[in-house]
Write a protein that binds this DNA or RNA. Sequence first.
DNA 1: CGGCATTTGTCCGTATGTATA
DNA 2: ATATACATACGGACAAATGCC
Lengths: 232, 232
Amino acid sequence: MRARTRETLQDRIIALIHERRLAPGALMPTEPQLMDLLGASRNSVREAIRALQALGIVEIRHGFGTFVGHAPLDVLSPSLTFRVRTRPGHGVRALHDLVAVREILETGLIGSVARDISEARLAALDALVTAMERDKEADRAFHSLLYESCNNELVLQLIGLFWDVYHEVEPALGPPEDRASDIVANHRRIVEALRNRDGSGAQEAMRLHFRDVKARIARAERWLDEAGQQPA
Amino acid sequence: MRARTRETLQDRIIALIHERRLAPGALMPTEPQLMDLLGASRNSVREAIRALQALGIVEIRHGFGTFVGHAPLDVLSPSLTFRVRTRPGHGVRALHDLVAVREILETGLIGSVARDISEARLAALDALVTAMERDKEADRAFHSLLYESCNNELVLQLIGLFWDVYHEVEPALGPPEDRASDIVANHRRIVEALRNRDGSGAQEAMRLHFRDVKARIARAERWLDEAGQQPA
DNA sequence: CGGCATTTGTCCGTATGTATA
DNA sequence: ATATACATACGGACAAATGCC
């Protein structure tokens, strides 16, 4: 009976947030208050809050208080990274799946972007492409800026999440072999197609970009297989 | 300093899983063992494990043990649902974003499905469409079965996740107004296009399906605005 | 079926670190 | 600099669930 209560303790806290109409950023009741409201001990409350924190539903600020969170998607980053790393075969398969999803999303979005992108944004994209050779973060900013005009927060966070996970496990794929100039050229092709308001051209350029990414993964699969023969 | 240790405690447990090459389903060290390995108290260990459980990285079975988890995407379901519910304006905007992502994913995938779908699978889809009038779950099964041939576990879980979140919040949208026959007709059109190996036709049918879903959300937005005038 | 060991669940009390005022 | 409020951490104890003999 207590077990059922404990399992729904997180849900009861969530329900409490909804009942009180607490918006993201609002201050949560303190732990003693929650102990009283939920009829649970400090430890149980703390464990429930920890779980909610891991999901981004609450945010804890040390020595200050607990706040309602915005539940951003990047809370999934550890989980997705773990997922890729624990799949058999070094998770190359899982990584391929992840890149495939990125490709579907981005090729599906780029079409509508081509219709109404501003000159200012195109210039900003140009700047990011040139910065891409030195700064890896420019690549992330590029893919984010690209879809900002969609006014879809979920899409932006999804793409950011997948980018983060990929580039976190990417070093484990072995030596790059990719010339940075090729990556830059792929991205420049995308911008050029957008400048010409060529939606299908932009889609094709995006597919070329991901073709190279997937080729890197395929090479890594062979590389890891060979390395796997010899114990590390 | 202790605070930093605590924040990395989850990471240290994850690192421990990787070092020991523990695969999903494997038995984790017990809490006393983790206390010893990590040099932390039981409460700290438990809180870290709770957070990992919320992310699907470990699974806890009361009275038995803790196991390495599979980190399925549906751990995000509470977070995404919360996100939609706490957005201002009853989260209709967030729900629209979610459906938009579903549309991009499914229209992007359906093209490749049309090329190599088997007759057996088409028959199964037919059966699900007819079952759709009575059983809501048939709709979920339909969209899952549709993309099974992609061999992309991540895609399947993503689509399932979005379906779950949408249908969990959907009742709050007010009276349906949708004739179930329309939904069935939309799905039947998709299957017919697939049977004809018509990829772009299937894409168009999928877009029609989501056009109706988005129309329902738009109606709900007006409905909730009117209802919002009068305090509930 | 019952009893036993193991493991997780809950709770209490207390001490410490941290941020705000 | 002090005080307060809060989160963080620790240790010990008992309850509940599970698997096994």
